[in-house]
Amino acid sequence: MTSVIETHNVIKTYRNSTALDGVNLSLEPGKIYGLLGRNGAGKTTLMSMLTAQGFQTSGNVRVFGESPYENDRVLSRICFIRESQKYPDAFTPKHAFRSAALFFSNWDQAFADRLVDDFQLPLKRSIKKLSRGQLSAVGVIIGLASRAELTFFDEPYLGLDAVARQLFYDRLVEDYALHPRTIVLSSHLIDEVANLLEHVIVIDKGRIIMNDDAESIRGSAFTVVGSAAVVGSFLSGREILHTDNFASLASVTALGVLTPAEKREAAELGLELAPVSLQQLVIRRTLAASTGDLNAVANHSLEVSQ
């Protein structure tokens, strides 16, 4: 399958800092990708390179097989919804949607109208006077109704309340099901989006530290709780992500999948097993990457994906 996005050793340095440190990625068409990572990890920088809103210091970026830079053939197929999208001063949401309709060939006005109702967005109020949540709603509506072949949502939820965020996720899944396209969703609210993602990319300090199918990540780690000595011997030889001790008890998160026989053994030893959510796993892996051996973590993520 031809990749929608292909990056080779992309490096972006600012005066004193490295924002992207050798990013190699390949994104397939028709999937929902999650781009996860801490603030300042490089998510927005990466998306800016992919949408030609910034230029890499070195390395190679290909979108739809071409360089995106000043390339209308590529850019007309991309929609990038930034967290801090700027609009002309005099604009109302109505103006913003009209411009979007001109730019995006797949624009669906009926869908946009329905979303305006859903989000109860005042169409004729100046964008400057919208609340933070209403401003985010403008971006979400453009991102969904544009139906661009490649859509980036960079933390699109700022100021949206829980109800509005759920609305966004629901409309995204419904519309994606009917009109499959490549979506890259950058988010901190990992628990909220985890089940929507087909593939997960985690970036930390400009490096990719996880790059796997969401389904292979689910259940790729587990937590064992019990007497510290028993937990220790049960997990011997496994890669440990995190340990919490409390009196003589230990709660240890380890990578890997337990066989039914091992689960039985754990039960017979009086150990409790608990699943690890994607959010917990991302936190653990990010912390492990910044404190421990980066290569070990990267190598492991390769094993998981195979």
Binding site: D170, V173, A177, L196, E215
Partner: peptide, 18 residues
């Protein structure tokens, strides 16, 4: 349909299809 499963459970349609 897989899309109905996806919408109901709020999961990725490709996952439901699998």
């Amino acid at each position: 349909s897989t899309n109905e499963f996806a919408a109901f459970h709020r999961i990725n349609p490709a996952t439901a299809a699998k």
